[in-house]
């Protein structure tokens, strides 16, 4: 039986009917068309599906859509403002932190959670904050440089 939930995604309110076994990542990608959130493993191992749930970075494949009811979700699509790209997005572009791009959405959101609570993190803190976001392309070097740059 579908359950009606209300949630706020990227500052927009949605009212949707979801099956209890629908995960948040599938709600975002399938029902809401927010395909910027990626699905790399669906088991909470890779971090590609990272979103901010009430400001906390989580694997959206390990959250039921119904659990996100009455909560606030931010996805990669929600980072841009009228002023343009988020400084993290800008830094990822300029520093070459993006290769295949499949981890980028999640990586940027984990970094955002970090900068939101710790605006000038040291490198170990940065490495720790993104340690749940796997990247097979970059060796993390330029990602870390980009996060440092955005924190400047």
């Amino acid at each position: 039986m579908k359950q009606l939930i209300r949630l706020t995604v990227n500052d927009r309110e949605y009212e949707v009917g979801v099956d209890p076994n629908t995960t948040l990542v599938d709600l975002l990608r399938g029902h809401l068309g927010l395909t910027g959130t990626k699905k790399g493993c669906d088991l909470g191992d890779c971090g590609a599906c990272t979103v901010l749930l009430d400001g906390k970075a989580v694997n959206s494949c390990l959250v039921l859509a119904v659990q996100a009811g009455d909560r606030t979700v931010q996805t990669i699509e929600g980072l841009e403002t009228a002023q343009g790209l988020h400084p993290l997005q800008q830094a990822f572009i300029e520093k070459g932190a993006i290769q295949c791009g499949f981890c980028s959405s999640g990586m940027i959101l984990s970094a955002k959670e970090l900068l939101d609570r710790s605006p000038h993190p040291a490198e170990p803190e940065i490495r720790r904050a993104i340690s749940g976001n796997l990247c097979r392309c970059t060796g993390y070097q330029k990602i870390i440089e980009a996060i440092k740059d955005a924190a400047r």
Partner: peptide, 9 residues
């Protein structure tokens, strides 16, 4: 424990 993402849940 786990990762920052797991720890948040």
């Amino acid at each position: 424990l786990g990762t920052p993402l797991i720890r948040n849940l």
